[in-house]
Amino acid sequence: MPEIKVDEKLCKGCELCTTACPKQCIAMSDQFSVTGYYPAKLAKQDCCTGCGLCAQICPDLAITVFK
């Protein structure tokens, strides 16, 4: 199944990716990372289509898409 990986060291928890995902697969973690932000994560199983739009809008290049 397609999926995304969020690099928690890069993600600043801005949530822009959640607006870009056409299927609302992405949510924010409720645990903050070492950098003090709440990073994005793939929240639903079998949801991602690998379209890559989240990576298009991510300002921190924190998202890697696999298809």
Binding site: P2, K12, Y37, A55, Q56, P59, D60, T64, V65, K67
Partner: peptide
Amino acid sequence: MQQVNKWPSGLVNKPLRYCPGCGHGI
């Protein structure tokens, strides 16, 4: 499974220091 996107060679591979959500990163 194939990786769709990657860090471009035109950008140094290091975290950006801009504020959360800042458009400069894009």
